[in-house]
Design a protein around this nucleic acid. Structure first.
Length: 856
RNA sequence: GGGCGGUUAGCUCAGCUGGUUAGAGCACCUGUCUUACACACAGGGGGUCGGGGGUUCGAAUCCCUCACCGCCCACCA
């Protein structure tokens, strides 16, 4: 393809992304051995809406690494995954179609959602709901793919997987069964973190703190020896109070240990007990234990062997109960009932107001509530604080693995290294096993059924496990071996486990899913453990942690050798770019406005782990760079003379310099410091354009004869060839365009440049030549600029004062400097310091043999 | 409360193992349409390197300390 007269960036994205797809440029070659493969555990983006600027940012980092490794000669295992299962998708489907899942409804094969979501959500069966989830995520995934292709991600799209896909379901279920077999997973009915809006259990890793207003209420209990006061922010849990605790060494309460107290309003007699977790400085130093207000309550409940009086339902409201018997025994059942009736059916906030009113009336509230602001645990996607409810859930043992996980974290190579401390911090703070079951619908089912005995009791302790060769199974529709479909739910029959797995329980197996674990042993052996896990820092405690855990338990290894952590994109005001703003600045809009290479340039300016400001200015600079590459390349490639041996000192010097730059950039990229690699190449490239191209221009046009022109052409093409390849991972479109003008094949399949190749071509060029020539030229330009003259104007003689050593170097490039400066000659004056005098007026008429003279 | 990162020109950031007058780009000012590029080129102004101590012949760079910003974790009766 000839060099265009007026090269343009416009349209390169469509042109080249289509060509790459057609040519299979990024196809993984599964025939290669392990050491010829670079495998990436690509983050599967959550398919529950749109991609945002942060995605463009961090996936560019991944792609730069991928392209670098590919050019080093590796075949890239670079899959794309779609994280489409889970709550975000359910929530989006509910809003998008205006539906709500009701598992009690039968499947309606004819159901189609209304064109626009109705005000009142339509209840649909679980299967209808799941089908809608599949429908919407499929659409989203196509839209995502378009953005990724337009950004230039060099993924092999034939390796795509989805976390709700069959392969992922099979891997998740197999992984679960394996854990169960080795005792690393278990089921228990116990107090669990619970989101009352989503009505599901959640995991410790999915919690976040939020500052919310609250109030301390001082409440008076009746003790055997007088009143005992506690302080609480959750007076509504008073009816769930099962004990009072104080520190064993607390002299104020030591006399009370072993005695009973009676709760206000409800008249329940509770023991006063010592426990070291009670802190004398907090509140009144004695606390009420409720089932359950927080994790402390759970500890006290367990360690002190207290009973459960669970009052909260799965939706966060207080269930109606009859006071008087058993756990609801009261010294005054009528009063307890009357009080509780004010709470029943209410959620926490309403119940709190009711209780406070009642306590005020009864005089059992001491003083006024004291307003405070404190941090409360929320499910990260939730709107109300998490509660602790007793329920039956599946867990993976993590607490007993803490030491092993810390060792794995130390084994892993972190980029940047300091990010490891986040992992260590989190592992050290793990205090409960990982709850992996969710009371939701669009997720991977547990491959488990339970027998139902003749009395209709579900025998949870005797789960019927699906055999591995039946996976994936849906226990809601599939029937366990030895039973018939008619026996579902009947005495003597069976029931399916109703829950689905936490989405992290699936994505923690992303390397295994992508690599064909147990399904494609040849592939698995070649790509697992993988080379790289790229991801953002906010999910170290979830995705990275859980992936390391699963690989450790299942394969006794790390899932990858290296991890590359990306930062966040920040607003100009230094806050994390919010969803709303991220949606205003859509990735497609950005790519269209600035061009993909330019946006990638901005992204690559964000160092590993560094939060980076959203900066259109940086994108403009990237676009300038891409344009400059087009124009400079046009100059380099449009000469008349064929490249020949590189003999001119200036040319040999520039090859030496380019060789050094290439080696430096290579070293940075090998350290995963793509930002510095880009900066090295970029700074040099601008210098190269402004100085070397100017100095060599005349000779390249043949002003100094054929040999000089051939040397220039040889150095120009050789250096451009290397520079293009150095930029290729960052600016894949423009570099491919220029490459196509004069080379065959894709630049992205070309070999990564090595300094030694250039050194072989140019011999041992002396780089100092470049400095001397550029400084000399600079001084002459300065003189023209000061005289407000065009840089193209002619000047007279130039007198260079410099050290003898540098004068020698200058002599070797004299013709190049004279041509670039449009000066008539150079006089050399040995001196201590570099100084240049320029005779501005050109000689009136060149007279042969006439010596120019300087004034003074 | 524990930890991690940051604080360098108006803005975005380089400055890695301490070494000559602290750099780049953007923005600003002044020139120049010079046959690759005006999406360009040349020139210029602009910083007590967050504060305070210390080590050193020498500190933006190493140590201590404080402050502020951001994040992670823990606690939240």
């Amino acid at each position: 393809m000839p060099v265009p007269a007026k090269p343009e960036l416009r349209g390169l994205e469509e042109k080249w992304s289509a060509r790459w797809e057609e040519d299979g440029t990024y196809r993984f070659d599964r025939a290669r051995s392990r050491d010829g493969i670079y495998a990436i555990d690509t983050p599967p983006p959550t398919v529950s809406g749109s991609l945002h600027v942060g995605h463009v940012f961090s996936y560019t980092h991944i792609d730069v690494v991928a392209r670098f490794q590919r050019m080093l000669g590796k075949t890239l295992f670079f899959p794309m995954g779609w994280d489409d299962n889970g709550l975000p998708t359910e929530r989006r489907v509910q809003n998008y179609y205006g539906v709500r899942c009701d598992p009690s409804l039968p499947f309606d094969p004819d159901f189609t959602p209304p064109p626009s979501p109705p005000k009142q959500p339509i209840s649909v069966s679980r299967r209808n709901f799941i089908e809608l989830c599949g429908l919407l995520t499929h659409e989203d995934e196509q839209a995502f793919e378009r953005v990724w292709r337009s950004l230039g991600l060099s993924v092999d799209w034939s390796l795509t997987y989805a976390t709700i896909g069959e392969r992922a379901r099979r891997a998740s279920q197999r992984g679960f069964l394996r854990l169960l077999a080795k005792g690393a997973a278990y089921q228990v009915e116990a107090p669990t973190l619970w989101d009352v809006d989503f009505r599901t259990a959640v995991a410790q890793a999915e919690l976040e703190d939020r500052e919310v207003p609250a109030a301390y209420h001082r409440v008076r209990f009746r003790g055997e020896h007088g009143p005992v006061e506690i302080e609480t922010t959750r007076p509504e849990l008073l009816p769930a109070c099962v004990a009072m605790v104080a520190h064993p060494d607390d002299a104020r309460y030591q006399p009370l240990f072993g005695t009973m107290a009676t709760t206000p309003l409800f008249g329940v007699r509770v023991p006063i007990l010592p426990h070291p977790a009670a802190e004398p400085e907090k509140g009144t130093g004695i606390a009420m234990v409720c089932t359950f207000g927080d994790t402390n309550d759970v500890t006290w409940w367990r360690e002190l062997g207290l009973p459960v009086r669970g009052l909260m339902r799965v939706d966060g409201t207080f269930r109606p109960v009859a006071w008087g018997e058993g756990i609801f025994t009261s010294t005054d059942p009528a009063r307890a009932q009357a009080a509780y009736d004010q709470l029943a059916g209410k959620a926490a906030a309403g119940a709190r107001r009711a209780v406070v009113e009642l306590l005020k009336e009864s005089g059992e509230l001491v003083g006024e509530p004291r307003a405070i602001t404190h941090a409360v645990k929320f499910y990260e996607k939730g709107d109300r604080p998490v509660e602790i409810l007793t329920s039956r859930q599946w867990f993976i043992r993590t607490v007993e693995q803490k030491e092993a996980l810390l060792r794995r974290g130390a084994e892993l190579r972190w980029h940047p290294a300091f990010m490891r401390s986040r992992f260590d911090n989190w592992v050290n703070g793990v205090n409960q096993d990982w709850c992996i079951s969710r009371q939701r619908f669009f997720g991977v089912a547990f491959p488990v059924w339970y027998p139902v005995d003749v009395d209709g009791n579900v025998l949870h302790e005797r789960p019927i496990l699906a055999p591995e060769d039946r996976l994936p199974v849906d226990p809601a529709s599939d029937v366990p071996d030895g039973y018939t479909a008619e026996q579902r739910g009947l005495p003597g029959g069976f029931v399916g486990d109703p829950d689905v797995m936490d989405t992290w329980a699936t994505s923690s197996l992303s390397p295994q899913i992508a690599a064909g674990w147990e399904e494609d042993p040849e592939l698995f052996e070649r790509v697992f453990p993988m080379d790289l896990r790229p991801q953002a820092h906010d999910i170290i405690r979830t995705w990275l942690f859980s992936t390391v855990l699963r690989a450790h338990l299942e394969h006794d290894s790390l899932p990858w050798t290296d991890t590359l952590i990306s930062g966040w994109v920040l607003d100009p005001d230094r806050k994390k770019m919010s969803k709303s703003k991220g949606n205003v600045v859509t990735p497609i809009g950005l790519l269209e406005e600035h061009g993909s290479d330019a946006v990638r340039y901005w992204a690559a300016s964000g160092r590993p782990g560094a939060d980076t400001a959203f900066d259109p200015g940086q994108m403009k600079i990237g676009r300038k760079l891409a344009t400059k590459l087009l124009n400079a390349s046009r100059f380099v490639l449009s000469g008349e003379t064929e490249p020949g041996p590189v003999t001119a000192p200036l040319d040999r010097a520039v090859l030496a310099r380019v060789a050094r730059i290439a080696d430096e950039a290579t070293a940075e990229l090998q350290r995963y410091d793509y930002t510095r690699a880009l900066e090295r190449a970029e700074v040099f490239f601008w210098w190269y354009c402004d100085n070397y191209l100017e100095l060599v221009k005349g000779r390249r046009y043949g002003e100094a004869g054929l040999e000089g022109a051939a040397s220039a052409a040889g150095a120009l093409t050789a250096s451009l060839d290397v520079l293009l390849r150095l930029f290729a991972p960052f600016l894949p479109f423009v570099t491919e365009e220029v490459w196509s003008w004069w080379r065959t094949g894709s630049i992205h399949a070309a070999a990564w440049p090595r300094g030694d190749d250039l050194r072989a071509l140019g011999g041992d060029g002396d780089e100092r030549v470049l400095e001397v020539a550029a400084e000399l030229l600079g001084e002459i330009r300065k003189a023209k600029s000061a005289a407000q003259q065009s840089l193209g104007s002619d000047v007279g003689r130039v007198r260079l004062h410099d050290t003898p050593e540098r004068i020698e170097l200058a002599r070797s490039v004299e013709q190049d400097v004279l041509a670039a400066a449009r000066a008539s000659g150079i006089d050399y004056v040995p001196a201590e310091e570099f100084r240049v005098e320029v005779e501005m007026a050109p000689p009136p008429a060149p007279v042969p043999g006439d010596e120019a003279s300087f004034p003074g």
